[in-house]
């Protein structure tokens, strides 16, 4: 599969629309959190949209994806229904997990999205296992695991790299390097030359790209996915990016140099992709219309979620397990 996105403006528009959808979803999720409509915490994907979209546009519906705590963008890009996701954030009937999971536990198995994850790097080990099932079942799916730069210091990441290479499994590790682990600058707590070198030390091909460049993400992923699907074994893409907001919606991120943030705003993927579209014949009006359409779509989901019914409390007792499930009403066993 060869890819030159620059020759396919219609495809760029479609991918830009998906990026807009993620951005609008995340802005709305943050507002809903501050309005008290979303509980717990919300980890926004703002500023990294080109990675999820550029990667997932090169996957099949039946390919698997595992994600982390910052999983809304990955889910939407893989094809999860943003309406059901918004209902899940609001904890209402019709949510992706029936209200049992919330923001950090979005999953949509119907599109191969095997779940966001509240534990850093746990998606890595789940991914290599999913790949072993793929092999046992003689399928030609692949597994994509999204991990952040903070996750590369956990043991399961390094175990999973070793494991994936030992068994030559069809896994693409994507490290979204936004350079900050929660609120700690990652390089201050990371020895050695970083993620790509760690992967290479296991014999895993690793490439570092500008994750905010939709075109580079797309062309790299197209090549790498084809190689993995053809039996080439695991690979890693390090996509450099920048988290424009705090670790979660209630983190003001005031620990960062404002100049650094300002510089990042000039390199962020929405601005860059929009600039390319304007330079390549897409009109200001067309882009404005696209944004209005996406904003209206998300606003509609929020409006629906605010008014959606709550799940009955008794549903808390379902889907624990088949054997030895809790009784309702509960008395501790």
């Amino acid at each position: 599969m060869s890819s030159n996105l620059a020759n396919e403006p219609a495809r760029v528009v479609a991918m830009f629309r998906k990026m807009l959808l993620i951005r609008a979803f995340e802005e709305a999720a943050g507002e809903a959190f501050h309005a008290g409509n979303v509980r717990g915490s919300v980890h926004q994907y703002i500023g990294e949209e080109s990675i999820a979209v550029g990667i997932c546009e090169n996957l099949r519906d039946d390919d698997f994806l595992t994600s982390n705590h910052r999983g809304h963008g990955h889910s939407i890009a893989k094809g999860a229904d943003p309406r059901a996701m918004m209902l899940e954030l609001f904890g209402r009937v019709g949510g992706t997990s029936d209200g049992k999971g919330g923001s950090m536990h979005i999953a949509d198995f119907s599109v191969g999205m095997l779940g966001a994850n509240g534990v850093i790097a746990d998606g890595c080990t789940i991914s290599v296992g999913a790949a072993q099932s793929i092999r046992l079942l003689k399928q030609d799916r692949i597994v994509v695991n999204f991990i952040g730069d903070g996750g590369i210091n956990r043991g399961p990441f390094m175990e999973a790299l070793n494991w994936a290479k030992v068994y030559e499994l069809p896994v693409l590790f994507v490290c979204e390097n936004n350079q900050i682990a929660a609120t700690t600058t990652t390089r201050l707590v990371t020895a050695g030359e970083g993620i790509a070198k760690r992967a290479e030390s296991f014999g895993i091909p690793a490439i570092t790209i500008d994750g905010n460049d939709l075109f580079e993400v797309d062309s790299t992923t197209a090549r790498v996915v084809a190689e993995i699907r053809n039996g080439g074994g695991p690979q890693l893409i390090q996509a450099m990016t920048y988290r424009l907001r705090g670790h979660f919606a209630h983190d003001p991120a005031d620990y960062r140099d404002p100049k650094e943030v300002e510089a990042a705003l000039g390199r962020e993927p929405m601005v860059r992709t929009e600039a390319w579209l304007l330079e390549n014949g897409v009109g200001v009006d067309e882009i404005a219309a696209l944004k209005a359409e996406v904003d209206a779509e998300i606003a509609g989901y929020v409006e629906e979620a605010v008014n959606a019914p709550w799940p009955d409390g008794s549903l808390a007792f379902t889907d624990v397990q088949d054997v030895g499930a809790p009784a309702y009403p509960g008395e501790g066993r």
Binding site: I126, G129, A130, S133
Partner: peptide
Amino acid sequence: PISENTIMGAAVGAAVAGT
């Protein structure tokens, strides 16, 4: 390999993926 996290995690991934 001696990788308990992955022995268990891979079992989880394999189970949700159909084996």
